[in-house]
Design a protein around this nucleic acid. Structure first.
Length: 321
DNA sequence: AAAAGTCCCAACCGCCCAAGG
DNA sequence: TCCTTGGGCGGTTGGGACTTT
């Protein structure tokens, strides 16, 4: 037996709101407030709507100072930065953009911004996100339902932006790469998108400003696993004897997301930072490996400062085949 | 001109969580 | 401690608007 519905579905109107309904809801809330009970509110007003529907209508459309459309470049940058850091936490992202709703940002990201930044690239055949034509439907469904595309998408986004902002950065400079002879980072950048095409999609402002520099990450640190403050980022970078100073660090990846990446056969190289949870800052290790398709376990990692209680804070480099 | 395809976004669905009894 | 309830959230969908063929 499932959970009881929040309202009588049979006697509730669905679909677009009429101007009359909008006016009723707006007038009531402006006069009396929500009363802390959305479920009871439609009955008080005489609206044949679900309480949740009223809440959504008010929050996303009727409440004062809502902005619709016309996202600025600065807002684009903030959305990108936060998406890279925390993924699809739309309510948190919306909290950083006054007048914007989580629904608006979610729609904007899914329909426009993602395409603008990532472009429309053909996924490689080896990518587990692609489904061969000859596999049966059951397996296709299984694959789709077991994917967490967020982590991969965030890495792709970060790499794309990084290569645009600094052509000499880690991702485009093989001399900065760790000693992995077959690392195909340069190939991945070139294959992913023609650089001229990409540059045409990005405005001059976007070329000048780092997408990671325009947001106070510490304001949302509670939402990001691990610490992402700038001093730790600096420490981490300085301590790397493998990668040099050009490395950009992507915070906030959790175990499951990193495991997803490790198990993704299109991800041929992955490097993460490992820190001891309760240990001092200087007790950090770097983990680096060339992905071997026969190895899908983290057990084979080379941990420089082994610790029983470790977790993986940052992805610092990756490449796609 | 019409059909087909694509884009866009408002709204819904269902899950999770916290509060309170 | 368990159960119920409402609020909040992210994912998904339906359908109108627009574009392409």
């Amino acid at each position: 037996m499932g959970r009881a519905p929040c309202c009588d579905k049979a006697n509730v109107k669905k679909g677009p709101w009429s101007p009359e309904e909008d006016a009723k809801l707006k007038a009531y809330i402006e006069k009396y407030g929500t009363g802390g009970n959305w479920i009871a509110l439609p009955q008080k007003i005489g609206l044949k709507r679900c309480g949740k529907s009223c809440r959504l209508r008010w929050l996303n459309y009727l409440r004062p100072n809502i902005k619709h459309g016309g996202f600025t470049e600065e807002e684009d940058n903030i959305i990108c930065s936060l998406y890279i850091s925390i993924g699809s936490r739309w309510s948190i992202i919306a909290a950083q953009l006054p007048g914007r709703t989580d629904n608006d940002i979610k729609n904007y990201w899914n329909t426009r911004l993602k395409k603008k930044i990532l472009g429309r690239r053909k996924q490689p055949n080896t990518n587990r996100f692609s489904i061969p034509k000859d596999v049966n439907e059951e397996e296709s469904t299984y694959n789709l339902h077991n994917l967490s595309s967020s982590a991969l998408e965030r890495l792709q986004l970060h790499m794309q932006l990084q290569s645009l902002q600094n052509p000499l950065s880690f991702y485009n400079n093989p001399t900065l790469w760790p000693n992995l002879n077959t690392n195909p980072l340069h190939q991945s950048v070139n294959e992913n998108q023609n650089s001229t095409e990409l540059m045409n999609q990005i405005t001059p402002t976007e070329k000048q400003h780092s997408p990671l520099s325009n947001i106070k990450i510490d304001e949302i640190e509670n939402c990001v696993k691990g610490l992402s403050s700038s001093d730790q980022t600096l420490n981490s970078t300085n301590q790397s004897n493998l990668l040099g100073s050009e490395v950009q660090i992507i915070p906030g990846f959790n175990e499951a997301e990193l495991d997803d990446l490790l198990n993704d056969k299109s991800c041929s190289f992955l490097q993460t930072e490992i820190t001891q949870i309760d240990g001092p800052k200087d007790n950090m290790g770097w983990w680096c490996k060339e992905f071997d398709s026969s190895s899908t376990s983290w057990d084979s990692v080379n941990v420089l400062n082994q610790s029983e209680e470790i977790y993986r804070d940052y992805v610092v480099g990756y490449s796609m085949q």
